[in-house]
């Protein structure tokens, strides 16, 4: 007798994504969909999609999703959760959205201890607009707006969001993961699941930072881009649990 052990999650629509080859978004979308299925909350999940490459996430996820203005995801998410406290609300954001234009929204939502889940994809650049420098770009990283590489004197330093948020009382769970190989994907899924469980258990604000790959804008082959995440990004952005105050 055949036993189905792996299939399409119900929380994903049966369509192809529009992401570039090697991009981490599709992997993380799938992990979120699997977690939502496993927690059996698809019918009460409301996702908030960002401005950026993942704006079309609502075309891939099979549950309710709204757009938000650039950087405002967490304000939108917080209000949805306040109005519908029994629903599961998560914000999906990139680094330009969360760490640059939406910095105030991020800090205050975290500080208010809103009981939401934030999935933060950090790929060190503005992907959709063509690879401009982000606050998270590494020193020396060449982007379309730092053609000679990011130097601290002119551009300032890359920002570590989880370490910035960790001291805030309202923040309950912070973990940094990557999705460059099977082992790290399994780890990432566990972290994402924990962040959703925290919300269901009314623990409070949880955020998972995924070190994401952006081969197209980094001008690297997918495998090479993954190596860059493993070696360069993970060196500056330490992986693991940054805060667990449950």
């Amino acid at each position: 007798m055949e036993k189905l052990i792996y299939g399409m999650p119900e929380s994903l629509k049966n369509v192809s994504t529009t992401y570039c080859p090697g991009c981490s978004h599709s992997t993380v979308h799938k992990l979120i969909a699997e977690v939502i299925d496993e927690l059996k909350v698809r019918e009460k999940t409301i996702g908030v999609a960002p401005v950026g490459c993942a704006v079309f996430a609502y075309d891939f996820w099979n549950f309710d999703v709204t757009e938000a203005a650039h950087g405002r995801n967490q304000a939108v998410s917080a209000a949805i959760k306040r109005v519908l406290p029994d629903n599961v609300v998560f914000s999906y954001q990139g680094d330009g959205d969360l760490a640059s234009i939406g910095m105030a929204e991020t800090i205050h939502t975290a500080n208010r201890g809103e009981n939401i889940t934030v999935i933060f994809i950090n790929n060190t650049n503005y992907g959709m607009t063509g690879g401009q420098m982000a606050p998270t770009s590494l020193l020396g990283q060449v982007t379309t707006t730092s053609p000679k590489g990011r130097d601290a004197q002119h551009y300032g330093y890359p920002i570590k969001m989880l370490e910035l948020l960790a001291p805030l009382e309202g923040v309950k769970y912070l973990e940094r993961v990557k999705v460059t190989n099977a082992a790290s994907v399994i780890k990432a899924k566990k972290a994402i699941k924990k962040a959703f469980e925290n919300q269901i258990n009314n623990t409070g604000f949880s955020m998972i930072e995924v070190l994401g790959s952006c081969p197209a804008n980094w001008k690297k082959e997918p495998a090479e881009a993954n190596r860059w995440v493993d070696e360069k990004m993970a060196e500056f952005y330490p992986l693991g649990v940054i805060k667990d105050a449950r």
């Binding site: 709204t66 109005v83 105030a104 929204e105």
Partner: peptide, 22 residues
């Protein structure tokens, strides 16, 4: 629900979210 926003940008986007939720 009453929320004191931390800026008018946050105010209007909270309203956006509350409206999304009906």
């Amino acid at each position: 629900v009453f929320m004191q926003a931390e800026s008018e940008l946050i105010s209007i986007n909270l309203v956006f979210g509350a409206s999304v939720a009906g």
